[in-house]
């Protein structure tokens, strides 16, 4: 199996040299194989989001390297690596342009990693494709192509963002607690859509979640971060048979530095 993502000896400290110094990522290494669907859990401040931001280029590591599909992208800017990455954020407002229509948003996503020139930005010929994709969501959005994104609910926006992240097949799909801001019912629906899209397209995926049950239920591999390091990496059959109790015991056994938040236990 080829490695789609390699994080090597990543270090990241915020506010280095000040009283607020925060050593977030400590010598973190992680490899993803083609088709891996990894759920990432960890307490508050464990470095989950920082890790994702280092993969996406929103943050640069102090040292270490990020390699995507064999190409060293450590120095590439966020917009330059976007061609490899599909991203969905925690805040539903971040993934889409509020004042642009659903179709316009999808057309922008459809050009991820391509040169944007003076061709028409939303050709009529593409609308059928967008309609078809939107119908997968089963939210009735396929008949609202011209509706402004801002009119949609948080769940609808996350679902559309998922489509946008995958309309051009990404090498890696990055999901940063993308259901955390949604009500439980909507969150479940969005997770269901996520699973559908990921399995159908066999996407290599990193999903951060604070919900242990979701982390166990989804994906083929589970990684637990604590104090900026990987302290647990379970895959295959062992992952399938995992329970929340076992996971908690493992965490205590490993002597995690950060306490598990209530939010995380609630799962």
């Amino acid at each position: 199996m080829s490695k789609v993502l390699e994080l090597k000896n990543i270090e990241k400290t915020f506010y280095a040299g000040t009283v607020n110094e925060n050593y977030v990522i400590k010598n973190l290494s992680l490899d993803l194989e083609d088709g891996d669907y990894v759920t990432v859990i960890g307490g508050n401040g464990a470095g989950k989001s920082t890790m994702l931001n280092i993969i996406s280029g929103a943050l640069l590591p102090d040292s270490g390297s990020v390699t995507i599909d064999g190409e060293d992208v450590t120095k590439l800017k966020e917009y330059q690596r976007a061609k490899y990455l599909g991203r969905v954020f925690q805040d539903p407002r971040l993934g889409t342009a509020t004042n642009m229509s659903i179709a316009e948003n999808m057309a922008i996503a459809n050009r991820r990693g391509k040169n944007r020139g003076l061709k028409w930005g939303l050709p009529k010929s593409e609308e059928a494709e967008y309609k078809e994709l939107l119908s997968i969501l089963d939210l009735g959005l396929e008949n609202r192509l011209d509706a402004k994104m801002g009119l949609l609910s948080g769940g609808q926006r996350q679902a559309v963002t998922l489509l946008m992240a995958t309309i051009q097949r990404p090498k890696i799909l990055l999901l940063d607690e993308h259901t955390a801001a949604l009500d439980p019912k909507t969150a479940a629906k969005v997770l269901e859509i996520t699973d559908k899209i990921v399995t159908q397209n066999k996407l290599t995926t990193v999903m951060i979640t604070h919900n242990m049950r979701d982390a166990i239920k989804h994906g083929n591999r589970l990684v637990m971060l604590d104090a900026g390091r990987v302290i647990l990496d379970i895959r295959g059959e062992e992952k399938q048979n995992l329970t929340v109790d076992q996971l908690l015991k493992k965490f205590e056994h490993l002597g995690g530095e950060s306490t598990l938040s209530d939010r995380m236990l609630l799962g």
């Binding site: 917009y79 976007a82 990455l85 971040l94 889409t96 342009a97 050009r111």
Partner: peptide, 10 residues
């Protein structure tokens, strides 16, 4: 409209 989204879309 949304710089973060724009960068994520390359």
């Amino acid at each position: 409209d949304n710089e973060k989204m724009a960068r994520a879309q390359g």
